[in-house]
Design a protein around this nucleic acid. Sequence first.
DNA 1: ATTCTAAACGGACTGCGGTCCGCTTAATAT
DNA 2: ATATTAAGCGGACCGCAGTCCGTTTAGAAT
Lengths: 203, 203
Amino acid sequence: MSLIPIRPGSSFGTQPERSDAARNRERLLQAARDLVAEHGVDAVTMDMLACRADVGKGTVFRRFGSRAGLMMTLLSDAEAEFQREFIFGPPPLGPGAPACERLIAFGEARIKYVEEYGELARAAAEHSPQNRHDAPPVVLWHRHIEMLLREAGLDRDPWLLALSLGATLDPERILHSLRAHGVPSERLAASWRELVTRLLREC
Amino acid sequence: MSLIPIRPGSSFGTQPERSDAARNRERLLQAARDLVAEHGVDAVTMDMLACRADVGKGTVFRRFGSRAGLMMTLLSDAEAEFQREFIFGPPPLGPGAPACERLIAFGEARIKYVEEYGELARAAAEHSPQNRHDAPPVVLWHRHIEMLLREAGLDRDPWLLALSLGATLDPERILHSLRAHGVPSERLAASWRELVTRLLREC
DNA sequence: ATTCTAAACGGACTGCGGTCCGCTTAATAT
DNA sequence: ATATTAAGCGGACCGCAGTCCGTTTAGAAT
C-alpha cells in the first residue's frame, strides 16, 4: 500500500515507466471509465476490469495498489481541478475574499463536487481507515480549513475544529443526505452556511 | 439484512425461540467475547467464531445477519446503558441542565464511550453504508442532539445541524484522532466544548 | 408413543479483494 | 546481433463475508 503519484514516474531520479506498462495503464483507465459509466462504481470489480482491459489481475493491482487506489486515480483530475480552484482560483473560493466567505464557498463547492463524484469518492475511501483520513487531498482540505479558521481569528485548537468541519463535508455523509434522505443540495449548503457563520460570529 | 432486536423474541405475538437456538446463541456470544478479548475485534473472523462456538457457519449468520450485526449485539449492553444515561440519568448528561451543558456533556460521554468501545463500534458500522447512519442508536443520538439544539433556540434546520454535530462524534473519526494522531481525549472534549459553546452563543 | 412441521442447522459453495511467484520482455550494455 | 537484467506480467491461489439447500430436530398436536 503506497501513495499513488498524480503523474506516474513524475518523481525526479526515477526512470520513466516501460512502454508496455504505459500502454496497459491507458487500457486500464479507459476500461475502468467505460465500466463505471456502464454499470456504476459499486458494480465494477477488479476481475471485471482486468478482463475488459485484457490484462492479468496482478497487473491491475500492480498499477493501482487496491480498489481504492484505482478510484483515487479516476478522481485525480477532478480532484486536482478542485484544489486549483480553492487555492489559486477567483474569490470567494480562491484567495481575495474574507475567510468566512471563503469557508462558505468551500463547503458549497465541496457539496457540488460530491453531487458529481460522490460515488467515486466514497469508493476511494472504502476499506482504508488509514488512508481515509490521511490521503493527501484530505490532508490538504483539512489544512485549508484550518488556515481559514486561523485567518478568521479562531485560535483555540483550529486543527481539531477543522477536523470537525471536515467531518460535516465527508462524501459518505453528504451522499447519504442527498440520496437516502432526498435532502436537496441547496438545503445542505444553507445548513453549512448557517454553521460557519454562527461559528465565526464576531471573530 | 434485517434489524436485530435488543432482546431476541421480545416482540409480542412471536413465539419464543427454540431451546437449541437459545443455547447456541449463548455459546456464540461467549465465544465472541472470548475471541475479541484474546485477539482484538479486527482479527475475529466469522469462521473462527463458528469453530470456537462449535456451530456451523450458517448458524452464525442466522443469528446475527452479518459481522456488523454481531458487533452491534456485543455492543448492545453498553449502548443501552449509554442511552439510559442521557435520557433518564442525572444532569448534566440527563434532563435537568440547560441544553448547552447537556450537549457538551453528551459529547464528552460519547468520547469516553469511543475510548472504551471504539473498535467494536467501528466494526459495527463497517460495510453498512445504509445502517451506518440509519441504525436505531444512531438515529436516537441524532434526535437527541436535534432536540437539544431546538431547546437552545436554534431553529434553522436543526435536523441537518444535528447531523453535522453527529459527524464530529463519529466513532471512526474520534478513534483516528485518538490512536493515529495521539490526541488526548481531554483535548477532543475541549474542542467539542468550544464548538458547541460558539455555536450556541446568545441563543 | 407417534406423527408432523416449521424452525434451526451445517458446511459446501460463491464472489470479491488482494497476494505470490515463476515466466516474459523492454531497455540497455557490449 | 547478443547477452543481461530488472521491471512487468498473468493467473493460480488465499482468506473472508455471505448464501444456499439438503438434513436434522424441538416441540406441538394427536
